[in-house]
Design a protein around this nucleic acid. Structure first.
Lengths: 201, 201
DNA sequence: ACCGAAGTTAGAACGGATTCTAGTAAGTGT
DNA sequence: ACACTTACTAGAATCCGTTCTAACTTCGGT
């Protein structure tokens, strides 16, 4: 449930050799592939290890718990979202419009692999991890709202984080089958228009 | 992970005899006691059964999964919050002030048993359950904000639910040790003042 | 008071995450 | 090249949620 990436494979440092980087990549890829089939259940540690071609013990050396593995997979998804946004930035004219744009783009991305999304979101919420979804998503929202993270005052940071929280909950409701894409859009728009109302255009 | 309380012990109906009600009570009490020690981990099904003086199989007849058990425990906590609010309604003059009052009262209640709170919140977020926290809390917020649930239009319902979502996330951050009580209060106030701004006084 | 259905019990059994062990391979410094 | 620390492997072992089994009890109807 915890365990900080200390020595072995911190996202950046700690990987000495090329083969270790490749092992890590293979593991993440196997994990994502399995999860996008049957969700967390299908993503069994033994299966991941087998499919990645490493021993179970090695898998646990790279990712001390299943949660750590899930978190790493999510990290990759977020990387993809961020680069997608860099490539094609939200075009809306208001800060809240841009925020909604980004959130709905993320929603569509996650909807494409519902099992994966379900597994990832839930795991994230559970994780004791530092800087999981919340913070990264809030930072992203601040940026698309037009503020560098450094320039935001506390109130703005709180509001951006709040919008992130609302989105996460809506996503969860969607995964439970209680929201459609359109529901989410409407609800996020309502919340965003209030929360980001007085952000500088 | 699912299983609706169908025949055996629905919160209200289905319990025929007095001894069944008492069994249910003993189980819930044992579960809460264990969870308020070591959290979910300490609340092992075998241990709960033992401490409640029932067989493991019986425990599973009453609560088809650990999650169902957790949800039931949370339900009781929410009952207590609601009756506390009925006894001493929030006194603030504005709708958002009253909402903050209720949320912070709930926060204090949960802080008293952090392990329990942690277990419960996380489990709830994960649960596939109908009408768990979110809805009940949102309804409660609507009511203290001064609207009967029936009278609220969709926008108001969304805003109340959003505030509930923000609160849940803040609670999670607190349980992760990343927020103090004062942090939460400040942040909830900020979010509430935006989200409930134009509610009728 | 008696019967069958439903509820309970003790305990074994199963599945998947995590841990542990002993031995083998790879990488580093001298 | 040699010694040594570190990484990896195969597999057994442990822990806990959940399921299953067979026998025992309790309850409602007669």
């Amino acid at each position: 449930m915890e365990a900080v990436q200390d020595l072995p494979p911190g996202t950046a440092p700690g990987l000495r050799t090329k083969s270790q980087l490749q092992r890590r990549r293979r593991i993440l890829q196997a994990a994502a592939a399995l999860a996008s089939r049957g969700g967390v259940e299908a993503m069994q540690m033994r299966t991941v290890a087998e499919r990645a071609g490493v021993a179970l013990g090695t898998l646990y050396r790279y990712f001390p718990s299943k949660m750590d593995l899930v978190v790493a997979v999510v990290g990759e998804e977020l990387d993809m979202l961020e680069s997608s946004i860099a490539r094609r930035p939200p075009a809306a004219l208001t800060p809240d419009g841009r925020a909604v744009d980004v959130l709905m783009r993320a929603t569509r991305g996650l909807m494409r692999e519902p099992e994966l999304a379900d597994a990832l979101i839930r795991a994230l919420i559970l994780a004791d991890v530092e800087l999981p979804f919340g913070d990264r998503m809030a930072g992203l929202l601040l940026r698309v709202a037009g503020l560098s993270e450094a320039a935001a005052d506390e109130e703005q940071a709180v509001l951006a984080a709040s919008l992130g929280a609302v989105w996460v909950q809506e996503l969860l409701e969607m995964l439970r089958g209680r929201r459609t894409y359109e529901d989410i859009q409407r609800r996020i728009e309502i919340a965003a228009s209030r929360l980001l109302a007085d952000f500088p255009a």
